[in-house]
Design a protein around this nucleic acid. Sequence first.
DNA 1: AGACCAAATATGGTCAGACCATACATCCTG
DNA 2: CAGGATGTATGGTCTGACCATATTTGGTCT
Lengths: 246, 246
Amino acid sequence: MTTEERRRPDARPRAFEEVLARIEERIAADGLTVGDRLPGERQLAEQLGVGRSSVREALRVLETLGVVASQAGRGPDAGAVLTSRPGSALTDLLRLHLGLAAVSLDEVIDTRLMIEQLAAARAAASADTASTRTATAGTATARMAEAIAAMDAARDPVEFVEHDIAFHLALAEASGNRLTVAVMRALRDVLRRYAVDAVVRLGDTGGLQDDHRRIHRAIEDGDAEAAAAAVAAHLARAYPDSGLPA
Amino acid sequence: MTTEERRRPDARPRAFEEVLARIEERIAADGLTVGDRLPGERQLAEQLGVGRSSVREALRVLETLGVVASQAGRGPDAGAVLTSRPGSALTDLLRLHLGLAAVSLDEVIDTRLMIEQLAAARAAASADTASTRTATAGTATARMAEAIAAMDAARDPVEFVEHDIAFHLALAEASGNRLTVAVMRALRDVLRRYAVDAVVRLGDTGGLQDDHRRIHRAIEDGDAEAAAAAVAAHLARAYPDSGLPA
DNA sequence: AGACCAAATATGGTCAGACCATACATCCTG
DNA sequence: CAGGATGTATGGTCTGACCATATTTGGTCT
């Protein structure tokens, strides 16, 4: 089990890794934040004493991680700008490792279950304590209701799944945790294709909609246990072949 | 809220993105898996009709996502080899977005709570159903006990936290879900520094160890509710200033 | 035959320079 | 003052060269 760390155990750092470290230092030291610009590639290369290609590799890494976005041209929006889009990185990560069979579909679905169960339970609990909450939960349940209506009106599985994703994303957002929402979004992005298959296989979306209404009602009623149970039942119905517990 | 997707909305794909897509296609089409090698950079460049620098940027992205590892030299282990190490990607992702204040420490701790609570509850439930389980749960509780003993013997906060991480990782592994474990590992990697601070601030590790023993016992007793509650109490003690619910 | 050492070679790592594409900035003209 | 032509900063890409590393190959000595 411990065959890890076989590659590049020590080895002196590559130029682009040094660049990466320096940029991260600079972000922390200068208190840079979303919207701020990094120096141009040529300027960075000169400042750090490396070739421009090494700078570009470092920027590519940061772009992959959703931390910078590059834009050619001139003006205030050009160059490498700090952003914060962890979503696509998470999605790419999941999709690729799924493709390598290093993560199974069951595990993805299972992780989704964990997050969604707890998010539903929390949403129910916070509905209980009235509107002291930041209203996040309130608008979330409203969006869930909208999504249910949209699913009723959907004319094909693809459209249905789009609104289904919106429903479950709203559920995750009730947690008020951006990190959890980002993970949830990545999970759903990767599952989109399989969700469409599942809807086609089921043929009828009535059962799924019953589940959705049950989840929504449990949250509004402030019944955490029922909400969690409804989520579990829903996923078991949508993915009957996965090795979900219970 | 919808200022997203402002950058590169259409634009023709960059060369390295094309390379990325082709490599991913090839992985799927040829059924490549962990351990297989990709063609050399020069060869890929020629095959795909792009410059070597574009190939290198694509490989850098894949390396960032933990999908390939490159090694210079000659022989079966040289070149770009497919791997599956989502861990460092998740850690880098979290650390950088935390640095940009796009994710808060509270959210990281809160996500950890969600995962760990459910993992503990499941571990307890599977302990109940005897040894029909794949023994994952069994060895996990054993490793938890070892970690508790090691924490008792720890001589400084850094050492204590190392074993604390081992304890909580073992807990996550009881879920049998590699994806969850990878996320948990990233969360703990990022939290390491703050965990040491927390231990120093508390001064005494007795309370934390009481919590650990309570969690361990609840799992062995098969009491899912008690296990989840013990996890929540433990995190509330370790991070009293975070906005954890309850 | 075997052991050891030296050269060849394949592979990634890095740099320099050139040129293209893009999009704003600037300036000139009517 | 409006509008178009030109300038320029910025990322995107390619080529070619050279370095660093590690295995393979082959020769030489014992």
